[in-house]
Amino acid sequence: MNRRVWIKQIAIVGGAILLIPACQDDRGAISLKLKFIRISDKEESLLSGVVETIIPETGTYGAKKLNLYHFLLKMMDDCYDDKQQEIYVKGLRQLNNYSREQAGNSFNKLTHSDKLTILRSIEKGKSIEDLKYFLAETRKWVIKGYNTSEYFMTKIIPYELVPSRFHVCVKIFSVS
């Protein structure tokens, strides 16, 4: 092979390698880029189902509109060490088994009220420590994502950067 052609072919193969996504495996790609946590598209939709169950849309925006599940994954990916991330993902992977045992179906196939029943029961469950950790962390960050969102802090309970005042004792309502 002529040297020039050989170099050209190497360059093409090299370029092709660069095009392969960094976390390619047998699972589908997920909707955001993570540095450490590896989950599949199916696990992503399970997680998103949990997040929407915790903060559903009511008269006010819910998890979906506020994209809380991306915030949650960013927190888990950026703010935890590898051991904690491993336990978190293990916990997530236990959820469907637990749901099948308790309610006869995988989590996302349950009705909203059955999903709530499952979440409420996890705290009291036995030998599901990773699942408990997963749920506690998820709940914590989804709440934080909600109550510190721009939406919540401007529309629901306005946040003041410069309050200029502290009223030490204001009459807020009368007790009947």
């Binding site: 169950t53 903060i55 559903p56 009511t58 819910g62 709530l116 409420r120 705290e123 709440i143 629901i156």
Partner: peptide, 16 residues
């Protein structure tokens, strides 16, 4: 906020 999930939790957070 209490310990609940879903609509109850949300109502507690949104509650003024």
């Amino acid at each position: 906020y209490g310990n609940d999930y879903g609509e109850n939790l949300k109502a507690n957070i949104d509650n003024k």
